[in-house]
Design a protein around this nucleic acid. Structure first.
Lengths: 185, 185
DNA sequence: TTGCAACAGTTTCAAACGAAACTAAAATGG
DNA sequence: CCATTTTAGTTTCGTTTGAAACTGTTGCAA
């Protein structure tokens, strides 16, 4: 610990006794806490997969998602992509701009509505799609191999239910009794 | 679409026919793809919760995690915190520095090893802990209310198994050959 | 001892992000 | 019609991030 700005007491001899923590507060163990567990798991999985196709194709997660939704050869607008990939429009816009630079995507302005740009993958991107999909599916399988057939079905159900509920709670305006006050002291 | 840099074909009349996509490529539907689903769900949940305590206490996710592991009044080093929160040391270092500024944490240099700084929550942070834990648990309950008792147990099992497997796969050196081969089984 | 590798944390730097402001093009409507 | 609002997408700005480099400290070994 090098340039540790000297803060108040800098000695040692810390009483091993938990100084505070009133007994009536329900304990929270991070490792049992659903949001934490989901976050860590999703992170591990995404990160591993991302490294795989970053190394192989030099694309990022947003780009991979766009390739995934356009991989069928379809054409759609940026807004549609945003919806389908659950990314926001800024992220999509930036990813598209990168993909234009690397000739992965083709942008044509629509006739009927010139605000909407119609986006299509180039053959180059389609080639990546053809290679990356099996890779992605293989990885998914490797992960789900940890589960039985029954458990995989359960997982599907659970994720759907949780997502539905999480969406519902996220949409909720504001926690009813929530003060907008920054902590009393 | 304002300053759309004109890229090659800029007309319209897009043939609705999917130009490519050979039939032998297994389709990948993002909405059925586990890494994607996990990512979206974790994101929704974390984001909702983060907004909750950001608004109320002005703390970020890393700070909340640190409060969570130190909330019992324990004292530990930054490295230990990093392990327990599954954050990397840079993230922890920065969170701690913020918390020192806002008097949420106390840093004392150890006697035996002056590299390790011993970290403890201040009463102010403990007060936040006392308030935030019920909030967090309530939110967790609201989410899991979408599930039956059985399903909650399933979820626990599934997450554990998936995390274990994901960790295992993440640790795997690197798919050396270009191929995504199942490798040593 | 000193000499060097390993460790604990911090800092730096460039890329990535989110919110909000912005621009251009459509839709609305008086 | 022209003015206003909405929609589609981009840009800007300040913050956050992650990797790698760095600093101080300790442990180990010759």
């Amino acid at each position: 610990m090098p340039p540790a700005r000297r803060s108040s007491t800098a000695s040692s001899k810390i009483s091993a006794k938990p100084a505070a923590a009133p007994a009536d507060i329900p304990a929270l163990h991070l490792t049992r806490f659903l949001p934490y567990r989901l976050s860590v798991l999703a992170n591990t999985v995404s990160h591993t997969l991302a490294k795989l196709y970053e190394k192989r194709f030099g694309i990022t997660i947003p780009e991979w998602r766009i390739i995934a939704v356009l991989g069928g050869g379809e054409t759609m607008s940026a807004g549609e992509i945003a919806q389908r990939t659950a990314m926001d429009k800024v992220q999509v816009s930036r990813a598209i701009s990168r993909m234009l630079d690397s000739s992965l995507i083709l942008r044509e302005s629509g006739d009927t509505d010139r605000r909407k740009a119609l986006l299509t993958l180039t053959p180059k991107a389609l080639a990546i799609y053809a290679e990356i999909v099996p890779m992605a599916l293989t990885y998914e399988e490797e992960v789900t191999d940890a589960l039985s057939i029954d458990e995989r079905a359960q997982l599907d159900t659970l994720l759907s239910k949780l997502q539905a509920r999480a969406d519902q709670l996220a949409a909720r305006p504001a926690p009813v009794g929530a003060q907008t006050e920054p902590v009393e002291e």
